[in-house]
Design a protein around this nucleic acid. Structure first.
Lengths: 180, 180
DNA sequence: TGTACATCAGTGAACGCGCGTTCACTGATGTAC
DNA sequence: TGTACATCAGTGAACGCGCGTTCACTGATGTAC
C-alpha cells in the first residue's frame, strides 16, 4: 500500500543511519541488505523502493557517517583546545571499541576499492573534512593519516597493552609534532 | 594419488604466496578459496589437504606478507638514509597502485575484525615490525600509523591530485617530525 | 635390494546455505476532475 | 467538498548464483618387512 511521504522520508533516513552503523561495525561485506532493513524495522523486499543497489546504499552510508565526522571537526578545530580534545577522543579506547558510532574513515577506508559511487562520496567528504581541519594543509593530512592509521592498528591488534600504547604514543607525538 | 613431500611443501608455499597476493589486492572477502587454488595451479578440492579453513589461510597469508615487510624494515632502518628511502617507497604512487605486492597492514588492517587466528598473527608480526623500526618507540608508532593511514586514504580517494598530495605531504611532514 | 601395501595430495562433482535482487500482490495515499 | 482511480512503499516468497566445505575416488609415494 501507499504510505505518507513524510513517513517514507523518515524510513529512508532510518535505512541510511542503520546501514552506516552496521557497515562501520562489521564492514560492507559482512552486512546484508536484510540486516540493514531489519534494523530499520522493515522487510528486505522494500529496500529497492529506496535504493538502486547495495552499492548505492554504501555510498549514502559513507556520506552520512563522514558528514558527522566533518561537523565534529568543524566545531572542534576552531580552537587549539578543541583540537586537542578532538584528538583525545579520536584516540580513545571508547572510539577504538565502538566503531559502529565512530569515524567512517578509520572503519571503512580500507574496504573502499573499486566501487566508483562509494569512492566518489568518500572523496568529496574527505575534502570537506580536510578543509574543516583548518591550519596548514600538510599538518591536517599528517594528523588525519596518523589518526586513521592508529585506530585501524589499535583495532587489529589482539594485545590490549600494545593497543593502548599505540593510541597513547600517537596522541603524544601529535602534540610534539603537527603544528599545534 | 600421493605426491613427493618436496613438491607438496612447494605447493603449500605457493598457496600461501598467491593467497597473500590476492588478499592484499582485493581483500579477504573478495577472494575465494577457488581463486587462490587456481592461482596456485591446483583445483579447489585440494585446499583442505593444506589448511583447516579459509581463516587459517588468512592467518598464514598475513604472517607471510608481514614477514616481508619486517625484513624490509630491518634492512632499511639500519641507517637514516635507509629509513628515508623506505618512507619514500612506502608513500610512493607505485606502492599505492600495487597493493597486491605491498604492505599487508595498509591493505588489510581494516579488515581484521574478530577472527582470533588472523588477529594473533597480525599482532605478533606488528610487534616484530615495531622492534625492527628501532629508535624511540613513540616515533616508530607515529611513523607506522601515518604510513598505513596515508596509503589507505590515498587508495580510497578518487581524485588523483588529492591522492598524490596526501602521499607527498605526509612524506614531508614525517621528516619535520618523527625524530630523524 | 625387492615386494606388498597403507598413506595421502589431488580431482571434480556435489551439498547446503546465504546473499543480492526480482516479482506478484496489497491497499492507503494523494491527485485529477 | 466529494468521488474515482493511479501511484507506489511495503510484504514475503522465490530466483539464481556463488561460496566454503565435503566426499568418493585415484594412483604414485614412501614405509615395513
Amino acid at each position: 500500500m501507499r504510505y505518507p511521504a513524510k513517513e517514507t522520508a523518515e524510513k529512508h533516513q532510518r535505512i541510511v543511519r542503520e546501514a552506516s552503523r552496521l557497515f562501520r561495525e562489521r564492514g560492507f561485506d559482512n552486512v546484508t541488505v536484510a540486516d540493514v532493513m531489519e534494523a530499520a524495522g522493515l522487510t528486505h523486499g522494500a529496500f529497492y523502493s529506496h535504493f538502486d543497489s547495495k552499492e548505492a546504499l554504501m555510498a549514502a552510508a559513507v556520506e552520512y557517517a563522514m558528514d558527522i565526522t566533518r561537523k565534529g571537526v568543524e566545531e572542534s578545530f576552531a580552537t587549539p583546545q578543541g583540537r586537542a580534545a578532538y584528538l583525545d577522543r579520536y584516540l580513545s579506547r571508547r572510539h577504538r571499541d565502538h566503531s559502529a558510532t565512530g569515524c567512517a574513515m578509520a572503519a571503512l577506508s580500507g574496504e573502499i576499492r573499486n566501487e566508483p559511487e562509494v569512492k566518489g562520496a568518500f572523496t568529496l567528504e574527505l575534502k570537506a573534512i580536510l578543509d574543516a581541519m583548518r591550519g596548514e594543509r600538510g599538518d591536517a593530512m599528517l594528523t588525519l593519516a596518523a589518526l586513521v592509521g592508529a585506530v585501524a592498528l589499535a583495532r587489529a591488534v589482539a594485545d590490549e597493552s600494545l593497543s593502548r600504547e599505540i593510541l597513547r604514543e600517537v596522541r603524544r607525538k601529535l602534540d610534539d609534532c603537527a603544528g599545534s
